[in-house]
Design a protein around this nucleic acid. Structure first.
Lengths: 143, 143
DNA sequence: TAATTATAATTGCATTAACAACTAATTATC
DNA sequence: GATAATTAGTTGTTAATGCAATTATAATTA
């Protein structure tokens, strides 16, 4: 008797995510950055001067998680924060030169990594997968 | 100018996974168990008497993570461990009565949750998504 | 204007996770 | 049978996460 595998979408998403993420993490090691840190850095560079809340929304993370990842990026000298003159509760986040450079390098590495993923299944399947994930995610509310 | 979203499969998997998982976690709260603890408990019950390494393989987790989740389940009185007579390095894991009962209840809850997910997209799309995830995961090596 | 409500960010606590280093027991090899 | 290599499990460190509670500021409303 073979065992009945746990067949739930959440379990499947989690286990697949971890494998993809770990593989990417291994590649990123040479740049001393994690996939999650990279995700935030990307958005900091994609639109400079966003505040933490906006970054959290784009990155699909909650505010404390985003703040803590921003702290790491700050410690690493990749970004800087400036107080928002119009709202002293908030600060605006900017990449500095090291951050912009790293962003470009890692962006290229990521493109490479995505290509490799696409070689594992067909490009058509990868496109389908991507669309289905977008579809599902868009219908789920943030917790 | 709208921002260019980070369009990588890993980011998409992670953000979708977290939303699905958080939603399920909220439902599980009444049973005082997390989705990850549930995943391990499921396999403990699906085939009683496996050791930690086997459980880790089925659950797509590494050994330390599996061990720590087993510790939690043990503290909660849901499982028990017995030394493997044929290999004194290993122990075999069994559910106890409370574990079996909780497993059944949560399994039903999970079926409900999966149905709800399937209502968000179509059943056909959910089936496609599931197949594509299985396909991708099967081609990724464990880290 | 004063009091209330809402919001941006922070802090604390608990969970899951990856990875490396370690211990103890088993298996393989000489 | 002794030594070496492998394997099951544990421990320590660091990171990402969720959620709840808190602080400071801003916006609303009485």
């Amino acid at each position: 008797m073979t065992m009945q595998e746990l067949d739930s979408i959440g379990f499947l998403l989690g286990s697949t995510y971890r494998r993809v993420s770990n593989m990417f993490a291994a590649r990123l090691k040479e740049y001393d950055i994690t996939p999650e840190q990279w995700g935030i850095l990307y958005y900091v560079c994609a639109q400079e001067g966003m505040n933490q809340k906006e970054l959290a929304t784009y990155a699909y993370k909650d505010q404390p998680t985003t703040a803590r990842i921003l702290d790491v990026l700050h410690r690493k000298g990749l970004i800087q924060k400036e107080i928002d003159r119009h709202d002293r509760r908030a600060f605006l986040v900017y990449p500095n030169e090291a951050g912009r450079e790293l962003m470009k390098k890692v962006h290229a590495l990521e493109a490479q990594h995505n290509e490799e993923m696409t070689k594992l299944i067909t490009p058509e399947h990868m496109e389908q997968l991507s669309q289905l994930l977008h579809e599902l995610r868009s219908r789920l509310e943030p917790s």
